[in-house]
Amino acid sequence: MSTSSLEWSAARERPAPARLWRTGLLAGAAWGGLGLLTARLPNAIRDWPLTAELASLSFVVAALLAGLALAGRWVPARLRAAGPWLVALALLLGAWQLFTAKLGWLPVPFFAPPQALLEVYLEDWARLGESLLHSLALLGSGVAFGAGCGFLAGVSIGWSRRIGYWLHPVLRLLGPVPSTALLPLCFFLFPSSWSASVFLIALATWFPVTVLTWSGVASVERGYYDVARTLGASPWFLIRRVAIPAALPHVFVGLFMGLGASFSVLVVAEMMGVKAGLGWYLQWAQGWAAYANMYAALLLMALVCSGLISALFLIRDRALSWQQGAMKW
């Protein structure tokens, strides 16, 4: 901790970065090595297509990194910070390449080499893209619906004792039930599997958003209300301008948890009934023993989910810029 903060202050004091970006040079060498490994070592079990192309891609990355390393001073700070990871990434890809395509240590249909994933992205991008759009539409509808209802419910329970009297038992009974457990029920209660899935995703999002919004509104200091009341605030003003902004940090924690829960419901719903989307794609690929397609879809899913969470944190940082030292994603 102390050494890293020392390094940090030293880096700040330095007027200009060093002329040569050493880690970048190392990363360039690693990527060059990856290219050589891919191109020169013979494939073990079968001749994977796109091997030469993957090697060329590695060389391009290596050349770019080397160029940047020599340019040194103009490398953006964020890329500079990612330097060690660029080296590690090349090493990991190299190991993957080695154990699958080159040595064949990992059993073939189940483990695909990197070039097989590249092939999936190049050949099957239309179906993957369509699945992605489908997933996003379903997730977006469900999360928007659930978060909206959860926010309203949380504010109402936190504010009004009478609404709380009716909502609180429902929340306590229904909230902790895993949404996926209701899946079979919802598929015959709802007119379409799509609407059933929207409902379940909304339910999974609703619970944490409600609970945390409620706790946020309930824990607002009485003094905040007193101040506004003596200055002539109406009840509506107290809710909108005092309770909600004061509860917002809690609301964002709820949204974060709700979004996480919604991902798993989305995938299960797509696998069980919706017949579209990334979850369905995963199952379809597995059914055809197209494991490379499965890995490609998983990777895409990881990137998209991570991107959505990052976007949420970005919004939070904007909305709560008055807070100091909030957690960084």
Partner: peptide
């Protein structure tokens, strides 16, 4: 409560999410 009788509490109880200007503007806004 009435804005002709205003309280200053022991704690300043400023709203942390508002700037100084917006805090001072509270009564007029309300």
């Amino acid at each position: 409560p009435d804005p002709s009788r205003v309280v200053v509490f022991q704690d300043p109880t400023l709203y942390p999410w508002r700037t100084v200007w917006d805090n001072v503007a509270l009564g007029l806004q309300a």
